[in-house]
Amino acid sequence: MPSSVIKKYFYRPEQEILTIIYVSGSVYDYFDVPQAVFDDFRAAYSKGVFLNKNIKPFYRYERKD
């Protein structure tokens, strides 16, 4: 299902970095995200809900733009 908040996302497994590009244009890197968490994120029906509940509270992040 397309997200109303997330435009695109990329995952770099070597560094365990999840990059989220929001519809607003903001770009964030989430650090130390394990492959299993990314796999669950990718499979989630609502990526925005999954991000808010399972990634943002637990992983350090940084705005890139």
Rank of each mutant, 00 (worst) to 15 (best):
F38M: 04
V23P: 00
D29R: 11
P13D: 06
Q35N: 08
Y28T: 01
Y45L: 15
L51G: 07
V49N: 05
I20T: 10
S3W: 08
Q15D: 06
A43V: 03
T19R: 15
I6Y: 01
R12L: 09
Y28H: 08
G25Y: 01
S26P: 02
A36Q: 12
R42Y: 14
R42P: 03
L18G: 07
D32L: 13
Y59W: 10
P34F: 04
P34S: 05
P13G: 07
P34C: 02
S46C: 05
D39C: 07
Y11W: 02
S26H: 05
Y45N: 15
P57D: 14
K8I: 00
I17R: 13
F38N: 12
L51R: 11
E14H: 15
L51T: 03
D40G: 05
A43W: 03
V27Y: 09
Y61E: 13
A44N: 08
R63N: 14
I17F: 11
A44G: 08
I20Q: 02
F31C: 02
V49L: 08
A36L: 14
K47W: 07
R42C: 14
D40R: 13
S4N: 09
F10H: 11
P57Y: 11
K7S: 00
F58R: 08
K8T: 02
I6V: 08
K47A: 12
I6C: 02
Y11E: 06
V27R: 13
A36H: 09
K47N: 14
F10S: 12
F31D: 09
S24W: 00
V23I: 04
S46P: 07
F31R: 08
A44K: 04
V23M: 03
I17T: 15
V33D: 14
M1N: 07
R42F: 15
K64W: 13
I17Y: 10
I20W: 04
V27M: 13
K53Y: 09
Y28E: 04
K47E: 09
E14R: 15
I20K: 04
Y22P: 00
Y30Q: 12
N54I: 06
Q15T: 15
D32C: 10
F41M: 10
I20M: 03
I21Q: 05
D39I: 06
F31N: 06
F10R: 12
R63L: 14
I17D: 13
V49M: 12
K56G: 06
F50E: 07
Y9F: 14
Y30A: 11
K8P: 00
D29N: 15
Y61G: 10
I6D: 01
Y28G: 01
D40V: 02
M1Q: 10
Y61M: 10
T19I: 12
E16I: 01
V33A: 15
I55Y: 04
I17Q: 08
K8S: 00
F58C: 05
